[in-house]
Amino acid sequence: MAEGVTPRVKVPKKADAGEVITIKTLISHPMESGQRKDSDGNVIPQSIINRFTCEFNGENVIDIKMEPAMSTNPYFEFDAKVPEAGDFKFTWYDDDGSIYEEVKSVAVG
């Protein structure tokens, strides 16, 4: 697991049923591209988050395949429909097998 990985997610606390809301996510991660060399000239191996998903009450909102060209501390902004009250679940998948999760609840009404 990359050190000190911290997710940061913006989701409104409340929405109307059926409303479309905007979600922003950030996570601290070096996204080591595999293109860089250390000071001894050795290639620093690739180590990135390779996939991000967002689900609401188990149903998919977005599923993003991430490549080394994504910037350090990856950021996403996207829209989601909120059919009813429930939980957004955000999941980041690291090359090293680590999984980082964050859950945000939304009330309806």
Partner: peptide, 12 residues
């Protein structure tokens, strides 16, 4: 503050 990546480090 959710666009600003500096805020990640504030959380830390």
């Amino acid at each position: 503050d959710f666009d600003n990546p500096g805020m990640i480090f504030v959380d830390q």
